[in-house]
């Protein structure tokens, strides 16, 4: 029954395609993952910001960022959760923030702003089309 098989394959394809509801205007995003350690230990709740090296795109402004989980792992998000970063070169900054549940803003950096300035950052990443990026483990120093 080759015709029947073809039908089911087509149906599967259509169903899988139907699941992705990405807006056609959005830029292509490439998955970017990594792990954050502070003083050698995985750190939860580190906010990673991706600053584009060529400056903010004023045509189609996006912001890429991530929050590390309990194992220190993070995945970049731009439009949807964990969808990655648009193609480009980025400087990374790190802040260890707490949520103020009344003002709903993050603040109180436990790294005391040491890694929060893009012009002083030693960490960067290049995202190229079609290749998922694994930054690996980033070691930060918390004490002092």
């Amino acid at each position: 029954m080759p015709l029947r098989k073809l039908f089911f394959v087509t149906l599967l394809f259509v169903t899988l395609n139907g699941c992705s509801s990405r807006n056609p205007d959005w830029k292509e995003t490439i998955p970017v993952t990594g792990v954050i350690h502070v003083d050698g230990e995985p750190a939860e709740g580190i906010h990673i910001k991706f600053h584009p090296k060529e400056g903010v795109d004023t045509d189609q402004t996006t912001e890429t960022k991530a929050i590390s989980d309990a194992e220190g792992k993070f995945t970049a998000s731009t439009y949807e959760l964990n969808d990655g970063a648009p193609v480009g070169e980025y400087t990374l900054t790190f802040e260890w923030l707490k949520l103020n549940p009344v003002s709903m803003q993050f603040g109180d950096d436990q790294l005391r702003g040491k890694y929060s300035k893009p012009d002083k950052s030693e960490h960067s990443v290049t995202v190229a089309s079609g290749t998922p990026v694994d930054i690996g483990t980033i070691e930060l120093k918390g004490k002092k």
């Binding site: 709740g45 996006t62 912001e63 960022k65 991530a66 929050i67 989980d69 998000s77 731009t78 439009y79 959760l81 964990n82 949520l99 993050f106």
Partner: peptide
Amino acid sequence: DPANPAAYLQEGPC
């Protein structure tokens, strides 16, 4: 995804 609820607190375009 209930595994990482804190991730939904991120600011963004929506």
